[in-house]
Nucleic acid binder design. Sequence first.
DNA 1: CTGCGCTACGTTACCGCGAACATCGGGGTC
DNA 2: GACCCCGATGTTCGCGGTAACGTAGCGCAG
Lengths: 339, 339
Amino acid sequence: MPHDNRRPLTLRDVSEASGVSEMTVSRVLRNRGDVSDATRERVLAAARELGYVPNKIAGALASNQVNLVAVIIPSLSNMVFPEVMTGINEVLEDTELQPVVGVTDYLPEKEERVLYEMLSWRPSGVIIAGLEHSDAAKAMLESSGIPVVEIMDTDGKPIDAMVGISHRRAGAEMARAILKQGYQRIGFMGTKMPLDHRARKRFEGFTEVLAKNGIEIEDRDFYSGGSALAKGREMTQRMLERSPELDFLYYSNDMIGAGGLLYLLDNGIDVPGQVGLAAFNGVELLQGLSTQLATMDACRREIGQMAARIIAGRQAREETEDHVTLMPKITYGDTLRRR
Amino acid sequence: MPHDNRRPLTLRDVSEASGVSEMTVSRVLRNRGDVSDATRERVLAAARELGYVPNKIAGALASNQVNLVAVIIPSLSNMVFPEVMTGINEVLEDTELQPVVGVTDYLPEKEERVLYEMLSWRPSGVIIAGLEHSDAAKAMLESSGIPVVEIMDTDGKPIDAMVGISHRRAGAEMARAILKQGYQRIGFMGTKMPLDHRARKRFEGFTEVLAKNGIEIEDRDFYSGGSALAKGREMTQRMLERSPELDFLYYSNDMIGAGGLLYLLDNGIDVPGQVGLAAFNGVELLQGLSTQLATMDACRREIGQMAARIIAGRQAREETEDHVTLMPKITYGDTLRRR
DNA sequence: CTGCGCTACGTTACCGCGAACATCGGGGTC
DNA sequence: GACCCCGATGTTCGCGGTAACGTAGCGCAG
C-alpha cells in the first residue's frame, strides 16, 4: 500500500520491506552489478508495493553524475525550435540522457540567468542556440568543464562544439538564385534584428551578394510581435503600395513570407511573374498552401540530432566530429521563377 | 581567474578565497540570514572571480527543497502546448520556481516514464495535461505528496487541482451554433483519437447535440502525422468528392480546418454559403488568412497561467481556487454564416 | 563594570544515495 | 582437503550543501 505518512520514502524503506541492504536495492533499481533473480524480484515487488520513486538528487550527489542535458533556446513559439527539440529527443531517447529546456526570449540577460540556473544542476551537457553570448555566459560555459554544443549557426568560433548552417551563406545563396532568375528590384522584410543574430547574418550575406552585383535593396521593413502571418500580409501590402516597382520580396522567415504570398494571391498579383518571393526555414506547415513558397531548409531536425549525438558521444567517451556545418538547399517552389 | 583544475569548485573554495566560513558564503549566495554588507561584497567578489556556480543538487538534498515544476505535455509541435508554456512561464517568472518540460507524444507508457523521471527529482509541483492517466501514473502522483494540477480538460475528476475547459461542452456549443445557422448535413474530420481524449470529448459533445436534434454526422475521416494544413486539404477534397451533399465541415483542430478552408477557396467553393466550416483552438497564426475560420478559443495561455498560479500559491501556503473551468467563446469568423 | 540583547558569523549533524571495497559462501581444480 | 575464484551481498564513507543551533563581539542601560 502506498504508505501515506508524511515521511518520504527512501531506499531504507524498500530495503527493510524486502529484507536486503540498501545497496542491493540501489543495485536492483539501477540494473547494475550482480543481483540474483530471486532478490531482484523481491526488491522490485517491494518497491512497487510501496510506490517508491528513487531520489535522483541524492543519487546525483553521490555519483557526481546527472543525466540531464540543458537545452537553451530563444523561443518555443515559432516552430523552429520545437523541431530542433524533436531531433534532440529522437537521439536522447536511446540514451540515459534527458533534455531540460530553458527559454531565453532572445534576451541576453535572460540567457545568462537561465544558463546559471541550468549549470547549477550540473548537467551532462549543454546545447545552446547561437554563437553570441554575453561574456559572463561564455565564461560560465568555458569554466563549467561540461560539453557545450552551440547550434543553428556556424558563422563564428564556438566555445566547444557547434552544429548548424552558415546563415551568411544561406542569405548569399538565395541572393544569387534570385539574381540568376533576373529579378533586380528587391525588397526585404524581417524581424527587428538586433538580437536575432542569425536573421542578421542572413541579411548581411544577402546584401553582400547583391552589392557585388551592383544592386541594392530598394525597400525594407521590420516588425516585432504579433501573428507573423498577419504581419506578413500587412507589411507586404504597405511595401508594394510604397514601392510598386519592386519585382522581388525576400522575407526573413517563412511565416511572414506566407502572409505576403497570401496577400499577393488574394489580390490577383502574378507570382512569380510580376513579383517573386522567397523566405527562409522550410516549415512543414506551409506545405498545405496551394502555391509553394521558395525557401531554404534550415536543417533544424538534423541539427538537433547531431547536437544530441555529440553530447551522447562525449558521455560515452567516443570521439565525434564536433564542428559540423550542414548545407541547406534552396527549394524553388512556385514563387521563384526559373529561367 | 576562473581556475581550471579538474576539481570542481565548491563553497569551500569560495569560503577560502574570501576568508569566511562556508555557511556565510551560502548565506550570501542565497540572500538569506544576516550578513554584513562588507563581507557580502567580499564573498560576491570572490565567487565572481572564481566563476563559482552553486550546486543545486547538494542544496536541494540538504534543504529538501527543489524549485522545479514538472510540466508534462503530449507534444511541442502543434502550437497549443507552447502557448500553455508561455502562460506558465509568465507566472513563474516572478517566483523562484522553474518549469521543466517533459513530452509524452500522447503515449500513456511514455507519460508514465516521463513522470517517474520527473518525480525522481522531487519537484515542487506537477502540471500535467489531461485527466486520463495510467493507474500507475495516478498512484505515483497521489502518493508523491506534491501539488498536482491537471490542465486543459475538466470533464472528469482530478487527482488534486485542475484548470481547463469542458471539451464536451465546447463540442456541444459548436454543434448548437451550427444547427442554429441552419446547416444540416455535417461532415467531421480530425485526428485518430484513441489517445487524444480531449478531441474525443469534443467529438462526443458535438454528436450528442446533433443526435438530440435528430441529426447524424454523414461522413467522417481521421488522419495521423504529416503537415496538418496539407492533410486538411487532402481530406477535405476527398470528403467532398465522396459526399458532395455536405453543407458543413467540422474539424477537430484549426490547422486542418485552415487546410480545408484554403482548399475550398482555391476551388471557388462558396464559404460559408455552400459549405460552412468550423474548427477548434483559436490559433493566432491563422489571423493572417483572408477568410477567418470559425473556431473556439481553448484559453491556452490562461490555463497555463492559472495552473502556475496554483502551484506557486501552494508553495506560499496560500489558499487558491483549485478547480477552475474556463468558458471558451465561439469566434464566428467568416465561415459560419449568421442568420 | 555587569549583564542583556542583538548582529554577524561559525559548528555540527545530517540529507539519501552510490563508489569502492570488504565479506561470505559454495563449487571447481589439483 | 586445501586452495582459489567468483558471484552475490553488505559496510563505510563522503558527495556539497543547508537547518538549526551555538557563540563572539559590540553597544548600551543601569
